[in-house]
Design a protein around this nucleic acid. Structure first.
Lengths: 339, 339
DNA sequence: GACGTACGGACAAACGTTTGCGCAGATTTA
DNA sequence: TAAATCTGCGCAAACGTTTGTCCGTACGTC
């Protein structure tokens, strides 16, 4: 009784009907009589019958598992995203096979292998910072397993991805600062290799243009995002012939470093705007006055939805043009509660 | 070629040997000749053969999946824990089926159902705050599927669990403060209903006792952990006839609230010790001088290890005494880098 | 030359489920 | 009344792998 789970066979034997009839009855197949259906369902629930998912998945050649590879599970942005991913996967009857690369390209490669071995039906990836080659994802294309990239998009063509467009939010951010009266706005940007850096820059430029202001490229500086790097570029900024009265920072960490540094210099009056990565920022004293929100939860949901859509999409005939999802979740400026 | 994955059958056909021979060859069975083994393995790797896990799992009646139900994936403590869980699961060839209850007892019940349907081999649970009945876990006992509770332990007997003992860390914390010369140490504790509050209190008392100091119960105050609540109890503390020179706070949030409040009052010289929940705390200016670390990553690893051990343990004969794992991960005081 | 004994490999069953096909009996249609 | 259609159900194959059993060949022993 409390040993092995009930199978469809046992039900068939007890009811003295065939296994196929039981199966069809449980699946409400039209060719089964109402009375038979009732009898089967009744007994099934009495015996606590649960269909063996493994058998079904095996039969259908589907695993109902989506692989998710993220750089760091403990980072707020990603753990929020995974929350969205899980919610969608759950809703659509998929299981999440979770793994983290710890921003290590080698480990990422291994994980991709593992996902292949586990025969995931689809893969959701936010590539590690150190990943520079992308052949390991090609295998999935060959196997017809959809891959959706998420947030950190590799610079290759013909891929599905979901990412936030930081241009919009940046545009709003700079606009906001201009409206507040700032005229010299600095930007601590990330490495030029990142798409995200480019978007920030574009947003900045567009905001200046649409306000008919001259764009001064020297006010945008690149930074490796470390504390030392931040301090270095802050020095550059502060010694600039046009010292900024407001600074847009690449992320909350950079903002924290920069704010701490200005305060250590007893500098006041510089307004900071950042990009929301850290929930805790709300609990702090000296924080950016506004923040570009990227909605990781929403992004995660969207990415999972697309991936599962792709999995269930009828096969494209070979040669047919494949459509690639390039979903952009618009970022948005959120102004901090004044305290 | 690039369509369906290679199967053992195809290898057999190409090599004109039987499927079983191929299987045994790949598994290094002793009854297969060396030359055959070589030929099989060579072809297998050429064809990128990967054993179909679903088929194997199905055959063995094992899913190789462990279910993990946590209250909130986006909370740092839990996302760090899941990181540890995943690392162990990965290492031991298990897959993590992840779900979050959002601290909702109803949803938790549903998830437990779902896990049963998915036929997980084991379940790892940190119960939701609102869970008050525990029958939904009984089913697993009946089905002989091990359940390991994690961090948030339900108040029932005969269960496996892994949790941290905050008493040790608290003891160290208070001791540390005493050694630093503090004699009046306050504690902002959580609701009395929580086991965790009790452990903190015990640690506090033991530290005082072992230093032959009088324990003043009025120095320990209960708090609802909100900002308003924190400020309220801080007022109580600060107006206490014995104003504390050091305060142990229930968690980092409370510490932040309290520190912010003292600074808004221009109060200096109070040392804070907290319990580590937030990684970001390291990036901040005014932080606790020390922190009781609970090692969620380590806890997660331990819990996953125990669960998988239980899964693979030979069945206990009915009637035999079942041993329950009650693992306590000691908490530990970590002193902040002086800056 | 009859025997035991390795060795290398094949055969087939089993896991639980779905599903195409076929086959009765009952009902409707011509 | 015979033929066509419908209804309800059973048979058996299939998914990929492991594993117990059996079979044939070659070798060595008495």
């Amino acid at each position: 009784m409390s040993d092995k789970p009930t199978t469809i066979k046992e039900i068939a034997k007890i009811l003295k009907i065939s296994v196929s009839t039981v199966s069809r009855a449980l699946n409400d197949h039209s060719s089964i009589g109402l009375t038979t259906k009732m009898r089967v369902k009744k007994l099934a629930s009495e015996l606590n019958y649960e269909p063996n998912q493994k058998a079904i998945q095996f039969l259908h050649g589907k695993s109902l598992i989506i692989g998710v590879i993220l750089p760091e599970l403990s980072e707020s942005f990603f753990s929020t995203a995974i929350s969205g991913i899980e919610d969608i996967a759950y809703k659509r009857n998929y299981t999440v096979l979770l793994a983290q690369s710890h921003d290590d390209a080698e480990r990422e490669k291994l994980l991709v292998e593992k996902m292949k071995t586990q025969r995931v039906d689809g893969l959701l990836v936010s590539v590690s910072k150190t990943t520079s080659t992308y052949e390991h994802f090609e295998i999935f294309k060959k196997l017809n397993i959809p891959v959706v990239f998420f947030d950190r998009i590799p610079p290759i063509k013909d891929i599905h991805y979901v990412a936030s467009n930081l241009e919009t939010g940046t545009y709003e951010a700079v606009n906001f600062l201009l409206k507040k009266g700032h005229r010299t706005i600095g930007m601590i940007n990330g490495p030029n290799t990142l798409v995200a850096s480019h978007e920030r820059k574009e947003g900045y430029i567009k905001a200046m243009m649409s306000n008919r202001l001259k764009f001064d490229p020297s006010l945008i500086v690149s930074c490796d995002l470390s504390e030392a790097g931040t301090i270095e570029v802050m020095d550059t900024m502060l010694n600039h012939r046009r010292k900024p009265t407001a600074i847009v920072t690449f992320n909350d960490y950079v903002a924290l470093f920069a704010i701490r540094y200005t305060r250590s210099l007893d500098l006041k009056g510089i307004d900071f705007v950042s990009y929301a990565n850290l929930p805790i920022i709300n609990y702090m004293d000296y924080t950016p006055i506004a923040s570009v929100e990227q909605f990781p939860y929403k992004q995660g949901k969207k990415a999972a939805d697309i991936l599962i859509d792709l999995i269930n999409k009828p096969k494209t005939e070979s040669g047919a043009e494949q459509a690639y999802f390039n979903i952009v979740v618009e970022s948005e400026l959120v102004i901090s509660q004044s305290k």
